[in-house]
């Protein structure tokens, strides 16, 4: 870890007028780790904890606002979340461990960085960490890397579980920066790596995520977060699927689906959602949706297993959602 200055401003305005080479500190579960590994080298660390951004409150339109500083644990346990957005609660609980979720914040979760082995190791070339040095993951040990949305410059997975549910739920991210406020659909918040993989998202210098809005949207019990990983708990997803279906008389109304573990960002394909809408659930329909979601997938040396597993996970998740039997995050049997 290199020396840095530290401040803890109490207004948003001060917080977003910061010098270059600043990192915001929320729960620190990712940032501090990366600083200790010499991956993040901020000159200034601005601690956001004095700002009041930890609210979880109802919106006039019936939606919900999640403060950027609300912890993952508090969010997943909040009655309004468990009642109205159990899909989100489930996705949060599928991630990390209770200790980490107690500390991790919603804003931090959105902005967490990839778990690519090479990104984490400053001895290795990595375009995301050190632009222009190359991508060591290509042709390397890339079992955990992405198969969708990759580029020549980077094949790293965006690792969040929470964001997969937020993407499925069509959440909106609110930002405040030196130039004022703006809002972005979560589906557009994270970026494809293209040839600038060091930019994970559309956040501009000085911008802070203040809150995340969930639209009024209910699936009843027709939702699921199904996460496949290398052990039964406390591991990042190899493949995960967040799905919500509005079912009426055994017909799918609105369909929302997003994938984690496979893409360079939470992976959504509107055509796959459209393909489901107005149809009766069936294995072949789900297969078509899987095919549509995985279109363009490219595997590298070690990650072909993801492509083998992904369609099966999609089909199972859609079956769970259609049947109204969401995956339990404590019971490890997958129904």
């Amino acid at each position: 870890m290199r020396q840095f200055s530290y401040s803890r401003p109490d207004t948003l305005d001060t917080a977003c007028h910061t010098p270059d080479h600043t990192r915001y500190l929320a729960g620190g579960t990712n940032l501090i780790d990366l600083m200790k590994s010499d991956v993040e080298r901020p000159e200034h660390v601005v601690d956001l904890s004095a700002l009041s951004m930890s609210q979880i409150e109802e919106r006039p339109d019936g939606g919900l606002r999640l403060g950027a500083l609300a912890t993952n644990a508090d969010t997943a346990a909040h009655p309004l979340v468990t009642e109205r957005y159990p899909l989100l609660a489930s996705a949060i609980l599928a991630g990390a461990s209770p200790q980490i979720r107690n500390r991790a914040t919603n804003g931090g979760n959105l902005n967490q960085r990839t778990r690519c082995h090479y990104f984490y190791d400053p001895d290795m070339a990595c375009n995301k960490r050190s632009p222009g040095t190359g991508c060591s993951a290509k042709g390397g040990r890339n079992r955990i890397m992405a198969i969708l949305g990759t580029s020549d410059a980077c094949i790293a997975t965006f690792p969040s579980d929470m964001c997969v549910a937020l993407a499925a739920l069509n959440a909106t991210v609110h930002l405040t920066g030196p130039e004022g406020e703006r809002s972005v659909p979560l589906r557009d918040y994270h970026r494809l790596p293209e040839d600038t993989p060091w930019q994970d998202n559309i956040l501009r210098t000085g911008e802070i995520v203040t809150s995340i809005d969930l639209p009024p949207l209910s699936f009843g019990s027709h939702h699921t977060y199904l996460k496949i990983r290398d052990r039964l708990s406390f591991a990042f997803a190899i493949v995960s699927v967040a799905a919500g279906l509005q079912m009426e008389n055994n017909t799918i109304g609105k369909a929302c689906i997003a994938m984690g573990g496979v893409g360079t960002k939470p992976w959504c394909v509107p055509e796959a959602e459209a393909l489901l809408e107005g149809k009766t659930p069936s294995p072949s329909l789900f297969r078509d949706a899987a095919e549509c979601l995985l279109q363009g997938a490219v595997t590298d040396r070690d990650n072909a297993a993801k492509l083998k597993l992904a369609p099966r996970v999609i089909i199972r998740a859609l079956s769970q959602a259609a049947a109204g039997t969401p995956q339990s995050q404590t019971q490890k049997t997958i129904f």
Binding site: Y118, D121, M124, I144, R231, L232, S233, A235, F236
Partner: peptide
């Protein structure tokens, strides 16, 4: 996981070197 191109075991942390968790 050995990256033989450099001779280094790449998953050198507990997030990616998986030992069984309680659930396992």
């Amino acid at each position: 996981l050995m990256d033989e191109r450099v001779g280094r075991f790449m998953n050198h942390n507990f997030a990616e070197y998986h030992i069984p968790a309680h659930a396992d």
